[in-house]
Nucleic acid binder design. Structure first.
Lengths: 191, 191
DNA sequence: CTGATAATATATACTTTCTATATATACAAA
DNA sequence: TTTGTATATATAGAAAGTATATATTATCAG
């Protein structure tokens, strides 16, 4: 999929790897983060396959080594268009080391569970501000990119609400019935 | 992270690979889907590291080849507990081939974009039913697992709302100003 | 002016995750 | 008897993600 993120960005303008990473993080980087170790091998492969081409090496006028500017080829545009109009094969994938812990909190210390929830709340409140700021920038720009930004804000809001609800439920359970903590899992998995 | 999903599940009871996959999908499989190609190599590695142990080979009373039952060791429990109480290193990752297309819909055919959105709406309405059904089962079970199920439902609801909003906005844009489609991206990426 | 630090940029080795496919067992149906 | 289907394990290979090395230049401290 990184392949198509790169091909898509090169529709806007010619870019070098470093810039591509910045754009990926700023545009659909709400829930995405990418690495140089993913960018450069992909650029190499795409060039080998003739989907992109290195057009020029720019001497960096600020600092650092020269930039390798890539542009998309006709073949690349065709490949991208075919992908864009195809029905997505796979569905949404959400992976979160916090949520992975959450389902198992019943095996751990409820105090620590609450601490970790508070960490998450703080983290996503911070992120919320950043996302709202970015949204203002996108208000002017193309519809799809703006809508994507709005999804990021909605997701963040929903998650914060859920975290707060979880927090108060666990707190209630802990103080209310210390002898029968419903959070203590034994064989409570659905079959 | 799959490592800890396996170690976590083995806290409930001894299991074989096939059963572990089913449980992963049914418990936190809202946004997760796992493959045998991820299960068996992990079981192998965990056994080598002494975190789990193959306790018995059960002759399958239904059909198919014998099952290899694994149990968690003391070392495994210690490793799991340390992970459970640690602050998560990385943050939420959302990867979705539909959303990846969505940000680039401006480079494609708006008609097709609407079709793909409708596909997603149909898909998530189906999923919504399944999730609500599962939620009823979890009402009885442990707090954390149930809360996790509720997150799945909230996420699904929010996403469906967003899809419908996106749908009507794109439709409005298309019929309203055919000469100035705001969906047509040129250089509308945030810097 | 020399050396340390920081920002820009590319590159590669390695690990984990994911996909695809092969193999074995047994029951049921055609 | 072959074909299909459900159960179960296993492995090869591709894609994604992490960690780290290297090069270039500006800036600032000593």
């Amino acid at each position: 999929m990184i392949k198509y993120a790169i091909l898509g960005l090169l529709h806007y303008k010619n870019m070098h790897g470093y810039r591509i990473k910045k754009h990926i993080e700023q545009n659909f980087g709400h829930m995405w983060s990418i690495n140089y170790g993913q960018i450069y091998p992909n650029l190499k492969k795409l060039e080998q396959d003739g989907l992109i081409r290195m057009t020029q090496i720019l001497q960096n006028d600020e600092k650092g080594p020269p930039r390798k500017l890539y542009s998309i080829t006709e073949k690349g545009k065709k490949d991208f268009a075919a992908w864009l109009h195809a029905s997505p094969e796979k569905s949404m994938l959400l992976r979160d080391p916090f949520l992975m812990r959450f389902v198992f909190f019943g095996f751990g210390d409820p105090e620590r569970a609450l601490e970790l929830i508070d960490e998450q709340i703080a983290l996503y409140e911070q992120q919320m501000e950043r996302r709202r700021r970015n949204l203002k920038k996108w208000k002017k720009s193309g519809g799809y990119v703006r809508l994507m930004g709005e999804l990021g804000v909605s997701l963040n809001e929903m998650f914060l609400q859920w975290l707060n609800r979880a927090r108060s439920e666990i707190l209630k359970d802990k103080t209310g019935e210390t002898s029968h903590p419903s959070g203590t899992q034994k064989r409570s998995i659905a079959r």
